[in-house]
Design a protein around this nucleic acid. Structure first.
Lengths: 228, 228
DNA sequence: CTGGATCCATGATGATACTG
DNA sequence: CAGTATCATCATGGATCCAG
């Protein structure tokens, strides 16, 4: 298998970093592994639009670059991909891109746009972390489209992981990504079950909509027609 | 002219950011404009290996994405490219990549590797900012290969710009990038003129070599002695 | 000289279908 | 579930050329 040895040939650590994660899809694979190990098909579901061929190639490259490892247990069909410590250290890069996107590439979810629960939550968490003053500890357990997510604050930063909580959560939400989107953007929440004590629940309701208040670009003046 | 409208189609601000700056070379163009406006040929010199065609295309795309603007003055031959505020906000992304590269992709400059003064300085500054405890205010003026660079600390962070200092600098260095590389990595500094008062000068000497102390990967397995 | 444009070759990616 | 195979298209690199 031919390796991607395209080098910029610069003595520059930014270029060196981009030689490893600058290919299309690479940083998005890292992004989706930052919340925990995933299987091939988990990644395909999140990376809507990636072809299996490309995902295979990226995972191989990231493996060779020692950013990702593949757990293959004998007698088990599934392969679990997870980040190495070096891969996990790309968290600040993803965070920086995420914050920049929030500032300069924000746009309401479009009607036909595929929406994965994990991406919606990631954006919500980034918006809360940036725009809200409330960083008191909290733990929310969300079960969306059958997947477990844990949103929590350690008192300083809000974080997202894709896992079942090891401790009881303050708030538990069950439903679909579409229902959560509706809740966030101020529409019906009939299809969402939200459980918890009154105070944490009220706090959840107050914070979860933070991203809907971000309207930096001209928003709602019809849609922007992309022409070539 | 066909535009690059390749979209990931995700509701995810990281993906949205990468749709704008994820193409090959794009973030490196941003990197080289972060230190100040540059001409087309200035960029070609720094982005060693980029073809004029690709640079033209990237500059057009970044212009349309409102990250870069082109200053074309009537009666002046040169075109000066500079970052818009949105483009300058990518600084944290570049910094994060740079720090990751310093940690996980560090390697001594190779013998035949082209070395641009600005990249060498950027790496030196990042290493000082990360590894050194000394963040007291300072201003160093370096004139390398005929270009002006200003390295300074505001008391919190070390920064690099490509400009003549507006205030007198503590230390002034004149020479070539190759001579600075030699100084940093502990070889001859005959071809480098270093001027300044004793104390700032001593501090410069103490800090400038910081990057040479970073040897995380297996380094110096001998046998590499070819120098031009 | 600067600031590109043009042509061609090659490599990377996408669409779709299929398999152990 | 975790990929392969095949084909088509797009993006990039290398070299060369050109206008102000």
């Amino acid at each position: 298998m031919i390796r991607n040895v395209r080098s910029y040939g610069h003595f520059c650590m930014t270029a060196r970093a981009l030689e490893r994660v600058g290919d299309r899809w690479s940083l998005l694979v890292i992004r989706d592994l930052l919340s925990g190990p995933k299987r091939f098909t988990d990644l395909v579901a999140r990376l809507g639009g990636i072809t299996p061929k490309t995902l295979t190639q990226r995972l191989r490259e990231l493996d060779e670059a020692d950013l990702v490892t593949a757990d293959r247990q004998p007698g088990r069909r599934e392969v679990w991909y997870r980040l190495t410590p070096a891969g996990a250290d790309l968290g600040p890069v993803i965070d920086a891109l995420n914050q920049w996107g929030l500032q300069h590439a924000w746009r309401l979810p479009q009607p036909g746009e595929p929406l994965h629960a994990e991406h919606l939550l990631r954006t919500a968490v980034a918006a809360i972390d940036r725009a809200a003053d409330d960083h008191e500890p909290a733990a929310w357990h969300l079960i969306l489209d059958g997947g477990d997510y844990l949103v929590r604050s350690d008192g300083h930063r809000w974080m997202l992981t894709a896992e079942e909580p090891s401790m009881p959560a303050d708030v538990t939400v069950t439903g679909t990504a579409a229902a959560l989107r509706a809740l966030i953007f101020g529409q019906s929440d009939r299809d969402l079950a939200i459980a918890g004590d009154a105070e944490p629940l009220q706090r959840f309701q107050a914070l979860i909509g933070t991203m809907a208040t971000l309207v930096p670009m001209a928003e709602l003046p019809a849609s922007r027609t992309t022409v070539e």
